[in-house]
Design a protein around this nucleic acid. Structure first.
Length: 514
RNA sequence: GGCGCCGUAGCCAAGCGGCUAAGGCAGCGGAUUGCAAAUCCGCCAUCCCCGGUUCAAAUCCGGGCGGCGCCUCCA
């Protein structure tokens, strides 16, 4: 039984899809006017894992992430850069897609773009006007919050709380809290035809329109960052539910926001803030956000492998805010290496590739009977712990602990059975190891991890280096054979200074680059 | 001011009423190794403070203190 924390009820609820066996997920994606930063990757990585886990759990799952490619900020940026809005959007969308790809986010079924759904947006707006929830004013169309009885149910705000100044359009609105569904085009702005004249959609309407088209009037899970609860999601609910007369989504899942830690020093953070005694500038820099500016995600990919960043994002529970720093990513990267080392060890012992192990597509398929095999009894136990954590509101942090327990058990098994030295004599043990390793790969894959070999620095991509290393290792082996340890150690130490690590194993010496 | 979140070892972090409080990073012992590396074993926390509820609280309630988010563009 999978349980999901629902922002709407502020509690965990058993997952009971609208249509049994099927789950529809809509995640609010980016407005593509600038290169994406790490904050944009949090939701996609989490929901990619959520989808994998749901599929693994037997649900036919559809994941939709929208791309908002028309908006005030896009217009401003395209003017500033002197290029058409559509070109800017295309460029930034490509950047976004490349970033997702590097993180292994490839389970997304649809990336609908707002400009491809203009008809749906206009239709929905017209429906709201027809039903009396919205009104036209000087070519703009506004949603009238006062007509929506339960407005504020998601964020816990009352309409009274909402009465602000109303922005620059106050004089055209009936109430300052009303929000725009459609904005009349000013000269030179990109626009689309509508019953109210040429214009473009307001910020929230595209999500209501696209989710309705792709997932239905009531779908299962709507996700997004915590910062979208108000006003974005609140307004989506108002639009969709007023138009359709039924709930928009059963479960609202919100992920915690990425925050910059002072260690990075680039965008400030908590400690910086303390140090500067509440200085306004550093205070505002604590949260990474589009408008505050932070380095492009693309640059981070030059520093860390995508899988390491993914593991970092999944190392804590998705609802928790997560502090970002290079140091922390390095730490989880160090942890990840434990797995990679085991994979190589597995290859050595079995002569087969870990990455070639079959992965059970579903939970039921992955179930197995330990049949009294002491290794497999433990493997099953850790598998259960993993599933239990994931069932509980996708607790990826707890789940990764089970993964670490599992590799340790597998390593211990290889040690105890001395499989590195005498694998050939232990056919039965190898079978157990295979079964256990397959479980590790299966579980990892539900998080989108361990799916394909990582890129190793150095090795094999340079014939000369490879040949030189073989030479050094052979010379050192000869020295060791002659008990000339001074020479052997000198070779190893000097290579160490160059960032090359040598490891002597039963089957020979292996080298790797830091 | 309004709404909300968080405070668990040196650092990160799971646990959210009841087993010896997961796991990772770092550190310290030990096994292994010619010495290392890797691996394995062991050690390293009474859960911000004060009250309360309960047979029983890190977990619930109240009050402090501290950190943060939203209320304006944001994933």
């Amino acid at each position: 039984m999978i349980r999901v924390y629902n922002t709407l009820s502020k509690s965990k609820e058993p997952l009971a899809p609208v249509s049994p066996g099927k789950v529809g997920i809509y995640l609010c994606g980016p407005t593509v006017y600038k290169p994406s930063h790490i904050g944009h990757m949090v939701g996609p990585v989490i929901f990619d894992a959520v989808k994998r886990y749901l599929v693994y759990s037997g649900y036919e799952t559809t994941l939709v992430i929208n791309v908002t490619d028309v908006d005030d900020k896009l217009i401003a940026e395209s003017n500033a850069r002197g290029m058409p809005m559509a070109d800017l959007a295309a460029e930034m969308t490509a950047d976004y897609m490349n970033n997702l790809d590097a993180l292994g986010v490839d389970s997304v079924d649809h990336f609908p773009r707002a400009t491809d759904f203009m008809d749906a947006i206009v239709d929905l707006t017209a429906t709201l006007v027809d039903k009396g929830f919205a009104y036209e004013s000087d070519g703009d169309v506004y949603f009238e919050i006062g007509k929506c009885a339960d407005y504020g149910k998601l964020s816990g705000r009352s309409i009274e709380d909402m009465r602000g100044l109303g922005g620059g359009t106050a004089e055209r609105k009936r109430s300052s809290a009303d929000f725009a569904l459609w904005k009349a085009a000013k000269p030179g702005e990109p626009s689309w035809k509508s019953p109210w004249g040429a214009g473009r959609p307001g910020w929230h309407i595209e999500c209501s329109a696209m989710s309705g088209r792709l997932l239905g009037e009531t779908f299962d899970i709507h996700g997004g960052g915590l910062d979208l609860v108000f006003p974005h999601h609140e307004n989506e609910i108002a639009q969709s539910e007023s138009a359709h007369g039924r709930p928009m989504a059963k479960y609202w899942m919100h992920n915690g926001l990425m925050q910059a830690s002072s260690e990075v020093g680039k965008v400030g953070g908590r400690k910086t803030r303390a140090a500067t005694e509440g200085d306004l500038e550093s205070q505002e820099a604590a949260k990474i956000s589009k408008s505050k500016g932070s380095s492009a995600f693309r640059e981070m990919l030059d520093m860390f492998p995508g899988e390491t960043i993914r593991f970092f994002l999944l190392s804590t529970h998705y609802r928790r805010p997560i502090d970002f720093s290079n140091e922390r990513i390095e730490q989880v990267g160090t942890g990840l290496e434990t797995f990679y080392r085991f994979f190589k060890r597995y290859d050595r012992v079995t002569g087969e590739s870990f990455y070639a192990l079959p992965v059970a597509a579903t939970r039921a398929e992955g179930d197995f009977d330990p049949a009294g095999d002491s290794l497999l009894v433990d493997v099953a136990k850790h598998r259960d712990a993993f599933l239990e954590a994931m069932d509980d509101d996708f607790n990826t942090g707890g789940a990764t602990a089970a993964l670490f327990d599992l590799v340790r058990r597998l390593n211990k098994f290889v040690d105890e059975k001395k499989l590195e030295e005498t694998a050939k004599d232990h056919a039965a043990a190898l079978d157990s190891l295979r079964r256990g390793a397959a479980t590790l790969r299966e579980l990892g894959s539900t998080l989108g991890l361990f799916r394909r070999p990582i890129d190793e620095k150095g090795n094999a991509d340079d014939e000369l280096v490879d040949g030189l290393m073989r030479l050094m290792i052979d010379l050192r082996a000869a020295a060791r054979k002659n008990k000339d340890f001074a020479t052997a150690d000198q070779i190893r130490d000097r290579l160490g200074e160059l960032g090359v690590t040598l490891e002597d194993r039963p089957g020979g010496t292996e080298w790797s680059r830091a």
